[in-house]
Amino acid sequence: MFPSEPTPDTVLSCDVFDTLLHRDHRSQFRRLRDIAALSSSRLAAERGIARAPGTIWRIRMEVQREAYAAQAMGRPNGDIRFQDVIDATARLLALDKAGGTILHEAELAVERVQLTPHTALFDWLKAQRARTGCRIIAISDTYHTAATISQLLGQLAPDHPIDAVHTSADHDATKRSGALFHAVLRQEGLEPGQMLHIGDDPVADIAMARAAKLRPWRVVRPRYVRARRKFDALLGRLQAIMHPPGLSEALESKSA
């Protein structure tokens, strides 16, 4: 199941999402809808601000789409930052700083609920640490900072053995382009052959790790999980076509 016999000078590197922390079947499409619903109810309850879930969802999707498009065009090796996404979303929702904080917290709350630790992998990592004393790090292509990922790991797997977290948002370099591996090797002071990287993405975690001369090892989610997630995304898209989010709210705001 896992690679055997890492040597003491090997650094074990792990991807985070769908490797250390498993997402459930919900697609990103659905996740953003859940975030919008939670944000909407919290804004109403805590700040007395009425923003319909459909409106929040539509704005959040717009921000993410343009942010990634701009990044892909202007700096394809880099990544966007979560806080920038939240700031822009709050601005377009005409929210103040406290409103932005609610959006921020709602995102992380939904993220947490959707994630479960990959206990078998954590057990194996702890066993390797006990056997060889090797260093274990996490490397993630994500718009979250290392501090946020560390917080999620701490909440979901309190006794995890991860010594350091590196994210594409912090380094402005992604695994998908290979640039993040080089940045981490530099920062950790390692030769590529010393690092064994474990992840689920065939491009970012395997092909690009191999291109950077790391030793990659792939873990995959069961086919039914991936199929269910795709089905969930398809369902979400169909729902959005049938009942476009934000449309009725736009009509109401116009008539008001």
């Binding site: 539509r58 704005i59 377009l92 929702l93 005409a94 476009p244 736009a250 705001s253 116009k254």
Partner: peptide
């Protein structure tokens, strides 16, 4: 105005 921003996308769909 600023308060119209949340509805820009929805009204565009219309």
């Amino acid at each position: 105005d600023e308060m119209a921003l949340p509805h820009v996308a929805g009204r565009a769909a219309l």
